[in-house]
């Protein structure tokens, strides 16, 4: 299914997360923070709610991803571009699409690896009570898809600029906008100059809404569709940008 080149790039990129300190730094920060905020003493805290589900865990996933996923994606293309290795990569018999896909899948797999590393929280709820494992599974799937969507956006901005900082900031801002697309303050702001119909359109892009239904254990084809379209569209954008740079 996956072409040989995609696999090769995927493997190399994935390996680079474990041979450079960056991957470890990311993982350690992510795993520590998600554990910390889940148990953080507040009203939504895991140990205060005393429900053997992962709602207090999944609630923070979008926000941690919002900061950490762009940090993963920012280097994807910006670094290649800056160091010039992109010239190496794209003069090998590899299409832009394969390269985009390989890099994206590698970083997505890395996000997946990090999610897998949160398994102690599943053990914790299993020890404390009787959780609904299917709901947890769907929650994880939702988180994985959300991570993929953020990454795809990050890929796009990483291809757009040589500068990793700019890529990071753009990604965070855009992901934030899409995440909060359904939130009243943003809608209120937009309603000052957008027609109601466009507002609805915009609201339907809200990532957190799609993510939350999955977190509750419902797998809607609509949600899967949403994430699939978002991921593919932004990756296509990324490919278009790289092609564009080639032509100019």
């Amino acid at each position: 299914m996956m072409s040989h080149s995609v696999k090769t790039i995927l493997k190399k990129e994935l390996k680079s997360y474990f041979t450079t300190p960056l991957g470890y730094v990311f993982s350690i920060i992510f795993l520590f923070s998600i554990g910390y905020v889940t148990f953080e003493s507040g009203r939504g805290s895991f140990f205060v709610l005393r429900q053997a589900d992962l709602s207090s865990f999944f609630r923070y996933i979008p926000w941690l991803f919002l900061l950490l996923v762009p940090a993963v994606s920012m280097r994807l293309w910006a670094e290649e571009r800056k160091s010039g290795t992109i010239e190496l990569l794209l003069t090998l018999p590899v299409t832009v699409r394969e390269a985009v896909l390989g890099k994206f899948l590698a970083s997505w797999a890395f996000i997946g690896f990090n999610l897998l590393c949160t398994f102690p929280i599943v053990l914790t709820v299993a020890y404390l009570g009787q959780p609904d494992y299917l709901v947890i599974l769907i929650g994880y799937l939702g988180s994985f898809l959300l991570g993929g969507a953020y990454l795809a956006i990050g890929c796009f901005f990483s291809a757009l600029t040589k500068n990793q900082v700019i890529s990071f900031i753009c990604t965070v801002v855009f992901c934030y906008l899409l995440t909060m697309a359904g939130s009243p303050p943003i809608l209120e702001f937009l309603s000052t100059f957008l027609h109601r119909y466009f507002l609805d359109l915009f609201e339907s892009l809200s990532m957190i809404h799609h993510f939350e239904t999955m977190g509750r254990g419902v797998m809607r084809v609509g949600d899967l569709w949403f994430f699939a379209v978002i991921i593919l569209a932004w990756l296509y954008g990324c490919e278009a940008i790289l092609d564009e740079k080639k032509a100019s």
């Binding site: 609904d132 709901v135 769907i138 339907s204 892009l205 809607r220 569709w225 949403f226």
Partner: peptide
């Protein structure tokens, strides 16, 4: 696509909640 897919496909779902 997101909008249309969202409103059309909303009905098709697998309710995994116990």
């Amino acid at each position: 696509t997101v909008y249309i897919g969202n409103s059309w496909l909303k009905r098709f779902k697998v309710d995994m909640t116990e």
